[in-house]
Design a protein around this nucleic acid. Structure first.
Lengths: 133, 133
DNA sequence: CCATATAGTTAGCTTAGCTAACTATATGTT
DNA sequence: AACATATAGTTAGCTAAGCTAACTATATGG
């Protein structure tokens, strides 16, 4: 069962990743950006934890996003050491576009299956991953 | 629906990836190795296509796997340009270990859900991804 | 026999990951 | 208040993993 889920997850993401080639932004940057867009502003440490990455790695990812104009950094009012990273409008737009391309691919994949099976999968996923957006 | 599947796949693999930290071998190498172990020997071009990677990248991944003793290279009998890459015993063992660690994590994740939901998910996955091992 | 295609490699770049060591600011204890 | 310790982030320097362009060597088709 774990095997089946693992294999399906790999299959879905491998297929969806094809869409990322159109995006000018790298995969780690895109992933960090999606956290910022969907979970709101964050400091570097939280972002690094969310992405399962060491702090220096997140420093670089955020620096690259900033150079591209995808995020803004602000000073944290209650801690002078920390910065708050926030998605800029350009970042939100880039993320939505990349995400849309991925979802289109997955939609195409699902459209080649029986609708009843897809509906069943939806129900099962909702039950097992209740927090899924 | 595509959204739900995408999100669940990300969630599962992000969680499972924690297990990879124990493995000495990098993620790209592990992934290529799994193709070799489960689909059998292959030449570089096929492997690069399977991994959605450019040929020079696969040259390096295979070189690293070879240095580690995880794969062997043979000459191709019917094409002197090509090499056949084959998993060595050490490679099979390393892959099984890494894979086992990932599956254990996913098992743990699923064990915290209602068994009926998990069974439903299994049925749905089998219907939508019939080729899944 | 030559032209073209294909398998793979080399060179050189970027991104993304790490650890170790550092600066600067908070915080808790005397 | 002073100092010790903890925490936020950065810098430096390494490796792995991705790419394109340009190359070598072998197949293959005319």
């Amino acid at each position: 069962m774990a095997e089946r889920l693992h294999s399906a997850a790999i299959h879905v993401l491998r297929y969806a990743r094809q869409a990322d080639r159109v995006s000018a932004i790298g995969p780690a940057q895109l992933s960090a950006l999606s956290v910022l867009v969907y979970s709101g502003p964050s400091n570097l440490r939280e972002l690094a934890d969310a992405e399962q990455v060491a702090p220096p790695t997140m420093t670089r990812i955020v620096a690259a996003l900033r150079r591209g104009g995808y995020v803004r950094l602000k000073r944290c009012p209650d801690d002078a050491r920390a910065r708050v990273v926030e998605a800029a409008a350009k970042g939100v737009a880039a993320l939505e576009k990349a995400r849309g391309a991925r979802l289109d691919l997955i939609d195409g994949m699902l459209s080649r299956c029986a609708p009843a099976d897809v509906a069943l999968l939806g129900k099962a996923l909702a039950a097992v991953f209740p927090q899924a957006p």
